[in-house]
């Protein structure tokens, strides 16, 4: 006699998987990958490929050594790799990018229990580690299309602190900075895709960018420059929206994003560094468990817990 399979309800599930979520994020980053290869040359593409490959490889090796289940199929290591590359200048020596990738996956992600368990954003933390380790390389920026003009990289200041004035067109389509920051139009296209596919909650980028813009406007700064010249668009759409390291509820995401905006404004205007997006997000990552506790929801119709003596 045939017996049928038994399983707990529900007996149907949505088709969305972790792998598909990560694939959506990768698709959203592709325009920027392609445009950066055009603006900064194949060197930028090489950095993206090396970071992704090293991230996947270090996850594979780490899980092999520690005898943990293999998780590279979820594609989250690829996302981390591309994001890290987005946070590096195009001229960074490749071995440094590789070191950053190992730090991101092994130290920041796997040491804390792997996907979903890490409290800090792996790409951002790795970027900061590289910044402290290889400061001069990490702050050497190149003009767009430098590879077409001269044999060597022409170093330039980040537009945020540059004396030069910038055309709005350049700020949108081709500017100097990290690989991922070169083209805000491509980033916005990807960010829009993530919102439409419901992978990210639009509250985060809107509140983050809005806070920076508002504070800059109130303090009499150049709003366009503050929003578009640095890494704000990249951070707001792709890093401050990371699931594992940001609050889980929409109200928490709002607090998180406003906090990021405030910190970015403070660091940029009163700190010793030109850029503040990475540190802002990292600091708010640390505060995430507290924000989650603060925004705990009240279950529908639940009675207040009566303390028993």
């Amino acid at each position: 006699m045939t017996n049928y399979l038994v399983e707990p309800a529900p007996h149907i599930k949505s088709s969305l998987t972790t792998q598909k979520v990560m694939l959506h994020v990768i698709i959203a980053m592709l325009p920027t990958v392609l445009v950066s290869a055009y603006i900064y040359g194949l060197r930028a593409l090489l950095t993206v490929v090396v970071c992704s490959a090293v991230c996947v490889l270090s996850e594979l090796v780490f899980e092999k050594i520690t005898k943990r289940p293999r998780t590279i199929n979820d594609l989250s290591a690829v996302v981390t790799g591309i994001l890290l590359a987005f946070n590096l200048p195009p001229t960074l020596p490749i071995y440094m990018a590789a070191i950053g990738s190992v730090v991101a996956i092994v130290v920041v992600k796997q040491f804390f229990g792997g996907i979903g368990q890490n409290f800090a954003n792996p790409a951002i933390t790795a970027r900061i580690v590289l910044m402290l380790s290889f400061s001069s390389y990490m702050t050497t920026w190149s003009e767009p299309f430098y590879y077409k003009n001269t044999a060597d990289a022409v170093s330039t200041a980040t537009p945020l602190v540059s004396e030069k004035s910038f055309e709005l067109f350049d700020l949108f389509f081709a500017k100097s900075g990290c690989i991922g920051e070169c083209c805000n139009a491509a980033l916005l296209l990807g960010g829009f895709y993530l919102i439409v596919t419901r992978i990210i909650n639009p509250v985060t980028p809107i509140a983050y960018i809005g806070t920076v813009a508002l504070l800059t406007w109130v303090s009499g700064g150049d709003v366009t420059l503050q929003v578009l010249a640095g890494g704000l668009i990249l951070g707001a759409f792709f890093m401050a929206t990371d699931y594992a390291t940001t609050p889980i509820r929409t109200s928490g995401k709002l607090i998180f994003a406003v906090g990021c905006g405030l910190l970015t404004f403070l660091i940029r205007n009163f700190g010793s560094m030109p850029e503040g997006v990475s540190f802002s997000i990292l600091i708010m990552n640390i505060l995430t468990p507290y924000i989650d506790r603060l925004t705990a929801s009240h279950p529908f119709g639940a009675k207040k817990e009566v303390k028993s003596k």
Partner: peptide
């Protein structure tokens, strides 16, 4: 098919 019996993977805190 046994779609609902898929092996769970780690929580990604997507909310």
């Amino acid at each position: 098919g046994a779609a609902a019996l898929a092996e769970p993977t780690p929580c990604i805190r997507c909310g």
